[in-house]
């Protein structure tokens, strides 16, 4: 059984029908990419999964639990975390405090928090150097690291990343994608939303293409990378 399974999800923003029947699966241990243009519904999909938006119909099963009517904060307890688009670190909290918030679900289990912090600092040594700095004073790349690190602090089974490459220099993008692979290697399943379709498809095992709120195409990432239509529409080739 898949770790995460969406069945025919419909989500509305007021009167706007944003997701029109999304069904997708994320297998344990994989990296799954969700690509598509701006406004296709990628972020909406992630926000629906993490409980920030409530789908009007359809079901979401995570790790055997139906979560489509569960409040967002309880979903995190099941081991599903979401690093939101645009990083969104807490600007007036220190790096340390940001990470502690990521471990909120662990309660006062000091040892577990310390162990997770060490793991995150190993992935992102820069964060350790800046641990007493305020989140808002970090550079864009550092904020992205903090956002991902924060989402890892609760030792999730599934990590959802929304546009981790957004607004970063190419060198940094490469480094971030490397780290995502490393995170996956450590046993965390990843659902990745990306505009940078080429990089995402190279990294992912499986991918879905979203167009105006529906899944237009899906398949193993390698196949999609070779697919004529995908190359034309998303990889900028003629």
């Amino acid at each position: 059984m898949a770790l995460l399974e969406l069945q025919d999800i419909h989500t509305y923003y007021g009167h706007v029908h944003a997701l029109k029947g999304i069904s997708l699966q994320v297998e344990e241990g994989q990296i799954v990419a969700l690509i598509g243009a701006n406004g296709a519904g990628k972020t909406t999909t992630l926000r629906t999964i993490s409980g920030l938006l409530r789908p009007r119909s359809g079901s979401i099963i995570f790790d055997g639990n139906p979560i489509h009517r569960m409040p967002a904060h309880r979903i995190v307890h099941l081991g599903l975390t979401h690093a939101p688009e645009g990083r969104q670190v807490f600007p007036t909290l220190t790096v340390q405090e940001n990470l502690n918030m990521g471990a909120y679900t662990l309660g006062n289990d000091k040892e577990a928090i310390e162990e997770n912090r060490r793991r995150v600092f190993k992935l992102f040594p820069r964060l350790e150097e800046r641990k007493n700095q305020l989140g808002g004073t970090l550079s864009g790349g550092e904020q992205q690291m903090l956002s991902i690190g924060r989402a890892l602090m609760s030792r999730p089974k599934l990590l959802m990343l929304d546009e981790p490459s957004l607004g970063l220099a190419p060198m940094l993008v490469k480094a971030i994608f490397e780290t995502i692979r490393e995170i996956n290697r450590q046993g965390v399943t990843v659902l990745l939303v990306e505009q940078n379709a080429r990089a995402a498809l190279k990294l992912a095992d499986y991918a879905y293409v979203l167009e105006t709120g529906t899944i237009a195409l899906e398949g193993p990432a390698g196949e999609l990378l070779r697919d004529e239509r995908v190359r034309k529409a998303y990889l900028g080739e003629t």
Partner: peptide, 9 residues
């Protein structure tokens, strides 16, 4: 809507 309007879809 959150994701803004796309320049070209």
């Amino acid at each position: 809507v959150g994701e803004g309007e796309s320049v070209s879809t």
